[in-house]
Deep mutational scan, measured.
Amino acid sequence: GPMASDKRPRTAFTAEQLQRLKAEFQTNRYLTEQRRQSLAQELGLNESQIKIWFQNKRAK
């Protein structure tokens, strides 16, 4: 629909990254900035991508 703007492409996470994020989520529903930074480095992701993933996951 018209609401779907092309400005922010959805990140396609790899299965491996998703597995890691899910495991982290089961341990911590809320990430500290430090955890998020190390996860971002570990997974080669953007911190904001991880932050948003957690927000979306909590919203469900």
Rank of each mutant, 00 (worst) to 15 (best):
Q17V: 06
L45I: 10
E16D: 09
R36Y: 09
Q41N: 11
N46Q: 13
L21M: 04
R58D: 04
A40N: 01
T11Q: 11
E47N: 04
Q37V: 09
W53T: 00
L39A: 00
A4T: 06
E16F: 14
F13Q: 01
Q34G: 09
N28E: 04
L45H: 02
L31C: 05
S5Q: 08
T14N: 07
F54K: 00
R35Q: 10
A15G: 06
K7H: 13
A59W: 13
N56Q: 13
K7F: 11
E24Q: 02
K57A: 11
A12L: 13
K22V: 11
N56E: 08
K22D: 08
R10C: 15
G44D: 07
A40W: 01
E24T: 03
E24N: 02
F13Y: 07
A15R: 10
L18E: 08
R35H: 08
K51Y: 13
E24S: 03
E47Q: 07
I50M: 02
N56C: 14
E16C: 08
E16I: 10
R29M: 07
N28S: 10
S5H: 04
P9V: 06
M3Y: 02
E24P: 00
T32N: 12
Q41C: 06
S38C: 08
D6F: 00
T27M: 14
Q49W: 09
A12T: 12
E33R: 14
A15H: 11
L39E: 00
T11R: 13
A15I: 09
Q17Y: 01
N46I: 07
P9T: 05
K60A: 09
S38F: 10
P9M: 04
E47A: 10
G1W: 04
A59Q: 09
L45R: 02
L31I: 08
A23E: 10
T32V: 03
A4C: 15
R58L: 12
G1E: 14
A40Y: 01
Q41I: 14
S5A: 05
L18G: 03
K7I: 12
S5V: 06
W53N: 01
Q26D: 06
S48C: 14
L43K: 00
F54D: 01
Q17T: 05
K7G: 13
D6H: 03
A4S: 05
A12P: 14
Y30L: 07
S48G: 10
L31K: 01
T11C: 14
L21T: 00
A59K: 15
I52H: 11
Q17L: 03
L43I: 06
Q34A: 10
G1Y: 07
M3N: 15
L21P: 00
L45C: 09
A15K: 11
A4I: 07
I52K: 14
F25Q: 02
T32I: 03
L18H: 06
A15Y: 10
I50D: 00
W53R: 00
E16V: 09
S5D: 15
